[in-house]
Amino acid sequence: MEALGVNLPKLIYQIINFGIMAFVLYRLLYKPVFNMLQERATRIEQSLKEADQVKEQLANAKRDYDAEIAKARQEAAAILMQAQERVKAQELELINQAQQEAERIRTEARAQTEQERALMFRDAQQQIAEMVTLTAEKVLQAELKQSHNALIEQSLVDLAKSRNN
């Protein structure tokens, strides 16, 4: 072996050199790189988990949003229906009012007409009575006395009553 250049001190030098290099590389290279790889692996795992969470949250939010939208739409539909109903009710009321008004106006008009007719009738009665009285006066100037007037008027009133009935 000596002829091949192997000798103990050089061999020991190489072994020690290897030991030192293994230690130095362990401290400077392997350990930090392994820590880095592990850290990165955990970070990737964590971010994947976070991404899942975010996705879930997003899905929840979407679901909530959809529910809200549906609710709002329902409410809107309800409000619309209410409004329509109210409008219909108002319309009916208005129509009723108008009908009532018309009825009232008609009744009033009828009453007025009635009143006027009665007035007119009474006027006419009086005028007729006066004319009759006048005529009768003139006719009866000779034969009949003034006292017969009351009797004539009474007979006219009876006549009017019988017609009204």
């Binding site: 072996m1 250049g5 192997v6 061999l11 030098y13 190489q14 072994i15 050199n17 290897f18």
Partner: peptide, 15 residues
Amino acid sequence: SPSADLNFTLALALI
């Protein structure tokens, strides 16, 4: 080259 020196290769083999 250390690999062309038997001390180096023998040391590694022993290790």
